[in-house]
């Protein structure tokens, strides 16, 4: 037994602290019941270990811990409501952070979506302008192309057309961008003083001139003149607004 004690005694302090493992722990646990002297020493170490529980400076817990416990023990004995307190606050903090992150992502998505819509609108407008420019070039290149001056109170321009064709290019300067809900509409004057729509357009904000391709139902030689009025968005069946530009063909 004495030989055993020589091996076991150095392990007793660690056993009292709970840090032994494996074979050493098994050896100590097997030895102690049969060895009074080691048991005395172990109990002294154990008393120290238990004293370490008390040998810790006190600290005042947060006020909400008492409130949380009072809330949880309220009601029938032993029936505890779902966990709250620090764990809930941590969960709530995570939820809050997650919510903020989601809201941030949504905001970023909205901004990106607006940018995409704006870019697509710009792309469409540029494509239309490019197409109009190509048509205008083609019309000007016709052997029989003609141009007439068009004038209004605050705007003016040029109409380039081939009398034998139902299409013309109109360059205007000085047309102001219209408020929402309004549009410019082109009218072609027939021989009996009737009006036929040549399409609607809006002024190119930020540019010095606006290029508009006019598409007529018949060759331009069938019309005696044309004009531009301000109409409700979508256009009208007949002119209803003020005339801002006009000319004879």
């Amino acid at each position: 037994m004495a030989d055993d004690c020589q091996n076991i005694e150095p392990l007793l302090a660690a056993h009292a602290l709970g840090s032994l493992e494996g074979d050493e722990k098994a050896q100590v646990e097997a030895h102690l019941p049969a060895c009074p002297s080691c048991r005395v020493l172990w109990s002294e170490y154990r008393a120290v270990a238990d004293g370490l529980l008390m040998a810790v400076p006190e600290a005042m817990p947060p006020d909400n811990l008492r409130r949380s416990l009072a809330r949880r023990v309220a009601g029938p004995a032993g029936a505890l409501p779902a966990s709250n307190g620090a764990a809930d606050r941590r969960l709530t903090s995570w939820r809050f952070a997650f919510g903020v992150a989601i809201a941030g992502l949504l905001l970023v998505n909205l901004v990106l979506l607006q940018q995409v819509i704006g870019l697509r609108q710009d792309q469409t407008r540029l494509q239309q302008e490019l197409g109009a420019g190509q048509i205008a070039q083609a019309i000007a290149a016709y052997p029989d192309a003609q141009s007439v001056l068009i004038e209004g109170q605050d705007a003016y321009g040029t109409l380039v057309y081939d009398p034998a064709r139902p299409v013309a290019a109109m360059y205007t300067w000085g047309l102001q961008p219209l408020p929402a809900g309004q549009t410019y509409q082109v009218w072609l004057r027939t021989g009996d003083d009737g009006r036929v729509s040549g399409g609607t357009f809006n002024s190119s904000g930020g540019k010095a001139f606006t290029l508009v391709v006019i598409r007529a139902p018949d060759p331009l030689q069938d019309f005696s003149g044309f004009g531009v009025t301000i109409e409700p968005e979508g256009g009208s069946l007949a002119p209803t607004g003020p005339n801002v530009l006009g000319g004879d063909l």
Binding site: L53, M54, V56, P57, E58, A59, M60, P61, P62, L65, R66, S68, L69, G85, A86, A87, R89, R90
Partner: peptide, 24 residues
């Protein structure tokens, strides 16, 4: 007893929130 309990929890856990959970 809470100053002792919380003090031990704080000594072992090392931060206030974890100590509060342990004490609770």
């Amino acid at each position: 007893t809470s100053p002792k309990v919380y003090g031990l929890a704080l000594r072992m856990m090392g931060d206030a929130m974890a100590a509060e959970e342990v004490a609770q």
